[in-house]
Amino acid sequence: MSVRIVSRPIIYAILIAFSLFFLMPVYLMFITSIKPLDQITLSQMWELPKAIDFTSYKEAYQKLAPNFLNSIYLVIPATILSALLGSLNGYVLSKWKFRGADWIFTAVLFGMFIPYQSILIPLIQFLREIELYNSIPGLVLVHVVYGIPITTLMFRNFYATVPTEMIESAQMDGAGFFTIFRYIMIPLSIIAFVVVGIWQFTNIWNEFLFAVTITTSEQQPIMVALQNLSGSQIVQWNVQMAGAILAALPTLLVYIFLGKFFVRGLLAGSVKG
């Protein structure tokens, strides 16, 4: 049994109150996005629209579609590459430990917590040097590199739960490093791949600092374009909200359908898996 401090109705009252707080912005975002501009006034802010109007979506889509595609070109390779790299690292760091491996792991982990501003100036110089500045491949590289700590962490913690005996008996049967990885570890870690994949997908999709400093105009991912939408022109709140919904849609869908794995990734991110 769990703790019973307060009575049921109060529990539900508090939970519902918090739920309203969490849903309020969503409600506003949604009804604003389906209103025509002239219905977006203070007095009508909370009211349902008189008629549903999708023109703001059309406009937001027109403005954001290229950037949406950029984000897709960015997120897919970056997620796959960083998950593969992370699983390999996690495999080595959990099953093939060598002297100092733990220190190396800790040193790698530190890279996950640094403020990325502190590597931004050399990073930009470097990307310019290798001619990947202002390009999606450049951003992919950045996200793969700075995704190493978190993906390694997640896979290492996952592989730590794989019994060592399995590896040992495989070695008995003559299996080598890669064979074990391919035929034992990868099939065992499909769930870990899903968790890490979702985590990286969400993070890279939502990332802003690298996106805004490394890319410009046509190369920009969706979040930067969304931010620019609220730029210097008259604020068209309906278009902005429609844009926000479009930008949030992929990660929201992932959350809705694979929320369990998302939360697992979230918990794994707190170092102690």
């Binding site: 969490f22 912005p25 939502n206 926000a244 930008a247 949030a248 929201l252 929320g259």
Partner: peptide, 14 residues
């Protein structure tokens, strides 16, 4: 949990 799946940019705009 769902707001965690959103970007800080979306949160800021909203």
């Amino acid at each position: 949990f769902f707001p965690m799946a959103l970007s800080f940019v979306v949160t800021g705009v909203v």
